[in-house]
Write a protein that binds this DNA or RNA. Structure first.
Length: 448
DNA sequence: CTGGGGACGGGGCCC
DNA sequence: AGGGCCCCGTCCCCA
């Protein structure tokens, strides 16, 4: 059984925070490189944030004024069983049958029209059902992409398409049709999405093992999509109950490691789903992924669509969820209720998880005006710019050396103190830095 | 080879 | 909530 979740859907249109910028990776490049020219989109356009509150999500779902039109979707064996975030009273609309509907959109799309909001916001969205990975595409036809000259790309990643969708959403703020804003610069890559013109790294790899997460993140995330920050799905707490035990893979070790490997796991996972629509998985990552896709389809989404499961998303799975983040969420879960959709690490607030997710997406919204270098964080940019200004605020009191970073000074002070706290366990040799010790051990004791 | 410094990524915390 | 700072870690380059 499950109770009726109260689902809050946030998304912003071109919402940029803190100097947030989108960036458009040049076509043909699969990874971000510092030396690559990048088109900066300051996102000076609309920056409205819209909130769709779907209360109790019963049949009337979003309540008065909100019309929901569930399209074909699919039953998710896992989510319907284990997560049960599905709206109560909204039984599975359709059973996923890849044999009968192979070309069906794999996302359940709907049009949510929120009345009472300025401009009578209409938004493309999906039902809030969390689907399996085999259900993570929006229907391009439903979304009017064909009319926009953006035919669906078989097997291609859909995030840029969703960007299109978002643009449509923007355009529909005035009640216009979906086909507006075709001249929006962000649509420029729409043609790039054409199957015949899509060397964007969006092709699906034939060999999953060779699939580069950067390829995904840089293409799908940077293809003009990054100006769509802030969309959030918050599965509100308390009302969500979860049935079933923690899936065995919930604590799987496969989602550990560095960010890219996490992303790769994430992608490989989805890849497997795409290549095998019949695959049934129980990975929570899967759930997160699909949630993301739900948010993605809502409009401004991108690969950074934030899946923020509130603290009791998995009231029964908390232990697993805590373990999942490598212990990152093992602290006060109430304080870290925003989960990274990639690694499930918990953060205390939305912005933190947004920033953190750049680890996985590779997004670097902050660019140096003097050297084109880009940074994921503003303070990193500020710190970097000391390279250009020559500013060295940190001075040694013992030798008048100056440093641009506090850490440099701290490290330098060891020269004076003679501190060598890192001792080799093999030969006893001591070093001032852990990295020195590590290198020493690699070279001297690698055979041990 | 080692030490020193520069640069940067990421998390946590404070204001 | 957002910005900034501190801290830690890592990598790289050079003497």
């Amino acid at each position: 059984m499950m109770e009726l979740p109260r689902l809050l859907l946030y998304y912003s249109e071109g919402h940029l925070t803190g100097g947030h910028r989108s960036f458009v990776k040049p076509a043909g490049h699969n990874t971000w490189r510092d030396d690559q020219p990048i088109t900066i989109d300051d996102g000076s356009g609309t920056s409205t944030q819209q909130v769709i509150v779907i209360e109790s999500a019963v049949a009337e779902a979003a309540g008065p004024g909100v019309k929901r039109e569930s399209s074909e979707g699919e039953e998710d064996p896992w989510h319907s069983k284990d997560i049960q975030t599905r709206v109560a009273g909204a039984p599975p609309v359709a059973t996923d049958d890849p044999t009968t509907a192979p070309a069906q959109p794999r996302t359940r799309c709907s049009i949510t029209e929120v009345s009472g909001m300025p401009n009578a916001v209409k938004s493309e969205t999906k039902t809030l059902t969390v689907h399996t990975g085999s259900d993570h595409r929006s229907d391009p036809e439903t979304l009017g992409l064909r009319r926009m000259g953006c035919p669906p790309v078989p097997g291609s990643e859909y995030l840029p398409v969703f960007h299109q969708i978002q643009k449509m959403v923007n355009s529909r703020g005035d009640g216009d049709t979906l086909d507006t804003e075709v001249d929006d610069p962000s649509c420029s890559y729409a043609t790039e999405m054409d199957p015949g013109n899509i060397p964007l790294g969006l092709k699906r790899p034939t060999d999953q093992s060779k699939w580069d997460w950067n390829q995904y993140s840089s293409s799908a995330c940077s293809e003009g999509c990054l100006d769509k920050k802030g969309e959030v799905i918050v599965v509100d707490e308390v009302t969500v109950k979860v049935e079933g035990d923690v899936p065995p893979t919930w604590n799987a070790v496969s989602h550990q490691g560095d960010g890219h490997s996490q992303g790769r796991d994430f992608l490989d996972y989805r890849e497997s789903l795409e290549t095998n629509p019949n695959v049934t998985t129980h990975s929570p990552l899967h759930a997160l992924m699909d949630c993301n896709l739900v948010s993605t389809s809502m409009g401004p989404s991108d690969s950074h669509g934030h899946i923020l499961f509130d603290q009791v998303l998995n009231s029964n799975n908390r232990a697993g969820a805590q373990a999942q983040g490598g212990g990152a969420t093992s602290g006060n879960i109430k304080e870290k209720r925003f989960l990274c959709m990639f690694c499930h690490k918990g953060f205390s607030c939305l912005q933190k998880v947004e920033i953190h997710q750049r680890v996985h997406t590779g997004e670097k919204p902050f660019s140096c005006t003097q050297c084109e270098k880009r940074f994921s964080r503003q303070d990193h940019l500020k710190r970097h710019q000391r390279v250009h200004t020559g500013e060295k605020p940190f001075s040694c009191t013992q030798c008048h050396m100056r440093f641009a970073q506090a850490g440099h000074l701290k490290m330098h002070l060891k020269v004076h103190t003679g501190e060598r706290q890192f001792a080799c366990t093999h030969c006893g040799k001591r070093f001032t830095e852990r990295s020195y010790l590590r290198i020493h051990q690699q070279k001297k004791h690698s055979t041990l």
